[in-house]
């Protein structure tokens, strides 16, 4: 009797396996170093920016995540005028956040909750694997001021946790940033598979052009909850990432053999997964 020998496990790069004693989770060695030296300034990475003060993350921004002002203005929590005035009057002593709270325009708890949401969401993208090295500019803190700083270790740990969480929902990171298409689920959707109200609002904006961050911005919502909504919709077969435009036709005269090898599909999926790491 012969047993099929299972193939050897592929080596897995476990970034969380060896946490740095300085407190970093190994997501960005540069960030860990900056935290250890209690640096103040701006770390620019490919998909976002982290503002450090005294080695703590006081602010984060990413083109993929609606920021604090977007979220506060979207549903009328603050008026654009109030925000602009606070930003104009902010200095190193009193940041814009503190000015807004002192003027009674926003409750401190509300500002802290909104700010933490925006920082972790932007941090998720800023700490995404990148193809270019990050650059750090020493300087001053962010003009928002220190609303509720988080440590580099906390941000890195949460970013890794969110990657794992999204992966469990639907293991294709492409839907995070690619234009989204509506797809027909197998079988008619019954009440059991009907998406929740939040997800229906997301689904209504899926048009083959907008990406998940576009939809978050259009709805005035945070980026990460929108990513979870999109991944759940993808898992339910209602949404898919739009495939990138097809490669141009080969020049006439070169006869390419028809490819029917299923391994090609597997290799393509493998390549996509590796690129997404």
């Amino acid at each position: 009797m012969t047993h099929a020998v299972p193939p050897p496990r592929l080596p897995v790069r476990d970034r969380a396996a060896a946490p740095d004693p300085a407190g970093g989770g190994g997501v960005s060695p540069m960030l860990t170093r900056l935290a250890a030296e209690r640096a103040t300034g701006v770390l620019e990475r490919e998909h976002g920016t982290l503002h450090l003060a005294d080695g703590h993350v006081v602010h984060a921004e990413s083109p993929f995540a609606p920021g604090l002002a977007d979220l506060l203005l979207a549903h009328g929590t603050l008026t654009p005028d109030a925000w602009r005035q606070a930003v104009e009057r902010a200095d190193e002593e009193r940041g814009a956040g503190r000015l807004l709270v002192e003027a009674g325009l926003v409750a401190r708890g509300a500002l802290e909750i909104c700010h933490l949401g925006a920082v972790y969401d932007a941090g998720y993208f800023a700490l995404a694997p990148s193809s270019t090295p990050g650059r750090f500019h020493y300087g001053t803190g962010h003009l928002l001021g220190a609303v509720r700083p988080v440590t580099v270790a906390e941000l890195e740990r949460e970013t890794l946790r969110r990657r794992a969480l999204l992966h469990r929902l639907w293991p294709q990171p492409l839907v995070d940033t690619a234009p989204l298409l509506r797809t027909a689920p197998p079988g008619a959707p019954g009440p059991a598979t009907a998406p929740a109200a939040r997800q229906r609002a997301v689904l209504a904006l899926v048009d083959g052009v907008r990406t998940a961050p576009d939809i978050a911005r259009a709805l005035g919502r945070r980026a990460f909850p929108t990513l979870t909504d999109v991944r759940r919709l993808a898992a339910a077969g209602l949404v898919a990432a739009k495939p990138p435009p097809a490669a141009p036709d080969p020049p006439p005269g070169i006869a390419l053999p028809p490819v029917t090898d299923p391994d090609i599909t597997l290799l393509k999926r493998l390549r996509d997964a590796l690129e997404a790491l």
Binding site: T77, I113, L219
Partner: peptide, 10 residues
């Protein structure tokens, strides 16, 4: 549950 005027889920 804490209702907020901006998008949150706390």
């Amino acid at each position: 549950f804490v209702p907020t005027s901006f998008d949150s889920s706390v």
